[in-house]
Amino acid sequence: MNAQTQNFLEVRDVKTHFPVHQGLIFQKQVGAVRAVDGITLSMRQGEVLGLVGESGCGKSTLGRTIMQIIPPTFGSVMINGQVVSKLSAGDLKRARREFQMIFQDPYASLNPRMTVFDTLAEPLLFHGLATKSEVTEKVSELMREVGLAPRFMKKYPHEFSGGQRQRIAIARALALQPKLIIADEPVSALDVSIQSQILNLLVDLTKRRNLTMIFISHDLGVVKHISDRVAVMYLGKIVELAETKALFAHPRHPYTRALLSAVPLPDPDKEKARTRILLEGDPPSPMNPPQGCRFHPRCSYMKDACKASEPELESAAPGHEVACLRHQEI
């Protein structure tokens, strides 16, 4: 590991823009969807960072940008001392061993024509982590680690349930012994009873393997359960970043407050007693985000200064950063 950097993951001012073209033949760029628009964050090794926000806020794009599935338009991503956003295609392939991804839909992310064995053996053989003779043993080991019986090795994805498929996807991500896992809504497609099994597995694996994980989800209950720290995104920017406990106990950004108050609690008495902060309208388009603070058109604390300048993340308390001009007053 690089001795100079303490942080395992460094994301510096990353922007990911998707150009929007108009015209059939002479296509010209008429604008850009600013999905991720200037994000800086860092993570220690072994830490679990929850990334929350509503659909379209750029949380998945940020995950994919860190993975280098989508190259950033601007900025750099450094994983374990290596600037992965500058690597050549060949070097990136080799470096990918270190960081792997788990996707939302286990029905779409597994190749239907490959057996569990094929799916899990491929990365091991490609990266030379196992020889042909040892690969069966390694695959069995992986399957046991994620709670699947090795006797199902020759089965195809369609023969498994959603929860089991997600276990296969997790085993595939773990095959190369990565240090960083990006899990993009890994339990959103699953029923509650299955969701709890997968969450237990992920908590267990991150502890056992000292994995660094970015857990992307719109479900705040799940994020609260699994994360050490939480970053809240709104329209391509992080608006608040804090330790999980501090964020849920003392949310400082008006958007975080509204988001937390909107989460339904499975507790009838608490549900009745609480007051909701209802936001007006829908999030604006990331193609044309509002001037100044991006949240100002929906914010009840808005004043003129919020329209004029865009607030940067600043420290509100130790380890608690918030991007709001008025966070001290409210």
Binding site: S193, S196, L199, G221, V222, H225, I226, L265, P266
Partner: peptide, 13 residues
């Protein structure tokens, strides 16, 4: 089974 019934990080039912 839902995380809200448990302390953060605690093993879920």
């Amino acid at each position: 089974s839902i995380p809200a019934s448990h302390a953060p990080g605690e093993e879920l039912f």
